[in-house]
């Protein structure tokens, strides 16, 4: 109407609109790039958890399965940053719906599946960026690192990011109002983080220098059960209820795979890890797309 020139062609209706995915993805990244406080948050979280807690608690814990405590929690801190970044992207949807761009998107003929995909891929990309902040400290904590490891870690983190952003989107679509990220941080992020084997091992042996060495037979016995003792020390015995919660938490398996990639150390069955990392994001993405498209 305000425009001159020939009329525009009709909008076609396919579920898959690469251009829509692209602009929605780019939007997430542009917003991230302009939000210095998020990058700062990731950095300060990393310093607190990886350096202060890692070396502080590490001083009394010595070793977990032969890894220093800072090394042990490295994948956990990566996960924590992924959790925060994904949920922040997702929860922004509550704003978006009430005072932001989401209504503009919903009233347009753009396919919601593509919009949701753009959002999820964007959230996951930011999660990978935020989750990579702890890698900057690898020289200090001393873990062998390589390009292959980095790429594999990014793949795991990306899948984790898609899943968690999708999970957050579903959560956000059920929230009518929003008055602070605190409830998400305390009610969602921290439980998922603490109950994923991120800061304490699910099983294995804690101790190391100063502890009595475990006899060879016992070590072999434990190895058959899947507990590999490298140093000597105490065998971890988690209360049953914590174990149940840890096993029920999908983040545990994603983190386990990440730890395997970064440290070559695993506490859960590889098959389950791989299933969780490949299947869950796809299911979660579909559920999220439906939640985003839903009209009240």
């Amino acid at each position: 109407m305000i425009a001159t020139g020939e009329p525009l062609p009709r909008v076609n209706r396919s579920m898959f609109a690469p251009r829509v995915i692209w602009v929605m993805w780019r939007r997430e990244l542009v917003r991230y790039g302009r939000n210095r406080s998020q990058i700062f948050g990731g950095l300060s979280r990393t310093v607190l958890w990886l350096l202060i807690l890692g070396f502080g608690l590490g001083a009394s814990l010595r070793q977990i399965e032969g890894y220093s405590y800072a090394q042990y929690i490295l994948p956990g801190v990566v996960t924590l940053n992924v959790l925060f970044a994904s949920l922040q992207s997702a929860i922004a949807l509550v704003w978006d719906r009430q005072v932001g761009l989401l209504r503009e998107v919903q009233v347009s003929p753009a396919p919601m599946l593509s919009v949701a995909l753009g959002k999820l891929l964007g959230g996951a990309t930011i999660a990978v960026a935020q989750g990579s902040i702890p890698f900057l400290f690898i020289p200090i904590i001393g873990v062998p690192f390589s390009v292959t490891k980095l790429l594999l870690a990014w793949a795991v983190m990306f899948s984790m990011g898609v899943f968690l952003t999708a999970f957050g989107v579903v959560l956000a679509s059920r929230m009518r109002t929003f008055e602070g990220f605190g409830s998400i941080s305390n009610g969602v992020i921290q439980p998922l983080y603490f109950l994923s084997g991120s800061i304490f091992p699910i099983r294995g042996i804690i101790g190391g220098v100063g502890f009595l060495d475990i006899p060879e037979e016992l070590r072999n016995e434990l190895a058959r059960l899947g507990v590999y003792a490298i140093g000597g020390g105490w065998v971890v015995q988690l209360p049953v209820w914590i174990r149940v919660l840890v096993f029920a938490n999908p983040v545990s398996y994603q983190l386990d795979l990440l730890r395997f990639v970064l440290l070559d150390f695993r506490q859960l069955p590889m098959v389950v890890d791989l299933l969780v990392i490949t299947i869950l994001p796809v299911i979660a993405a579909l559920v999220a797309a439906v939640a985003m498209a839903k009209r009240s």
Binding site: R27, E104, A110
Partner: peptide, 15 residues
């Protein structure tokens, strides 16, 4: 401009 670019993509305005 970025807001308008998103609109153009949502409505499939040819590149």
């Amino acid at each position: 401009r970025e807001n308008l670019q998103i609109h153009a993509a949502l409505y499939g305005i040819p590149g």
